[in-house]
Design a protein around this nucleic acid. Structure first.
Lengths: 199, 199
DNA sequence: GTCTATATCGCGATAGAC
DNA sequence: GTCTATCGCGATATAGAC
């Protein structure tokens, strides 16, 4: 009956992810999670050991586990490596909007869960910072400080998530992932003085 | 004794702002607010009518009430107007980090408080969108869609708030408001193809 | 206006039957 | 592994003394 167990655990995780994203961790009750998952109230504690543990399990289960080394060959050149990384990040934020909403929520407060989230994020941004430093050393990027450039890049990568709040104001915005990545890469490359690679 | 009343109300508001920013609205209790404000537990209900009303009062009290028309003359030229607006927004997010953290939290979830927050934000971004459209019409800005450009600008304006999470990784970042605005304006202007105005 | 005391509720967690 | 029933706590809000 291991299939059954995985099934219940997964249903809890998926419901929790959805509800945490919509209402925040504190704003979500175990009762809501269990109702949404069609699961008995006691099973969150039984399977995970409490609401906090569900949060951790969420990231272990759904945060993309790259292993950025796996893409080492594509990361060799700073320019195409940066383009690839930006596209991967935007792809993740579009693919799992719930988890990336949770990330954003937790990062803006001093929650006890912040360190968990950061432990998953740091390697990703670290790899990009490295690309920026390499690119600058090779004379391919133009900025004063790679830390500041990285911040702006983070902002642009996350900006499309703001769109949902301003739909009426923004006019018709293309929702296609490839297009969004493309726009972001263009904007960022202009910002750091790179001419677009010819694919 | 009106001075005393204002004093208690203000102490409640300031404590609530701080705690909401740190812990989120749902993660903060009325008890915590009252303790931080050195005020009796019953006074939040007495003066504001409940925790939710405190949230609304927060924005009415602390959200910068411009009246962007007030700066109409500085907004006449799209280029200098945009630079001015970016600087004002970053200035606000640096000046009241708590309120801008609250904004960011509420925007990522479907909270009942979201509409309140948006009603304060929409005029600001609307004015900037107008600048973008004007600038494009005058051949001063280069982007495909003003909606998409606005999103990236939002992202860059908010990006410096991410810095606190990655201090160790970013290296030494200049914290001076003028410098942060300057960097953001430069990056954005490059992104939309504007050469820096000579002050 | 401010306090204490308390009503009422909903939370997370668990004991124990099945 | 799943259920019901419930414990114990802490939440918001308020009644009523001062």
């Amino acid at each position: 009956m291991e299939q059954a167990e995985l099934d219940v655990k997964m249903r809890i995780l998926l419901s929790a992810k959805k509800l945490f994203a919509e209402q925040g961790f504190e704003g979500t009750t175990v009762r809501q999670i269990c109702e949404a998952a069609s699961v008995n109230l006691a099973l969150v504690s039984y399977h995970f050991g409490g609401k906090d543990k569900v949060f951790i399990a969420l990231f272990e289960q759904f945060f993309p586990g790259y292993n950025l080394d796996q893409y080492q060959d594509r990361m060799d050149d700073p320019v195409s490596g940066l383009a690839f990384a930006i596209q991967e990040i935007i792809s993740f934020t579009l693919n799992d909007k719930e988890l990336s909403d949770i990330v954003q929520q937790e990062l803006t407060m001093r929650s006890p869960r912040k360190e968990i989230v950061l432990s998953f994020l740091r390697p990703v941004w670290g790899a990009i910072k490295q690309l920026l430093d390499q690119g600058k050393a090779q004379g391919k990027f133009y900025f004063e400080s790679s830390g500041e450039a990285l911040l702006m890049i983070m902002g642009v990568c996350l900006s499309h998530k703001l769109a949902i709040n301003y739909e009426a104001q923004l006019g018709n915005i293309e929702a296609d992932p490839a297009h969004i990545s493309q726009q972001a890469i263009q904007f960022i490359f202009k910002g750091i003085g790179v001419t677009m690679p010819s694919e």
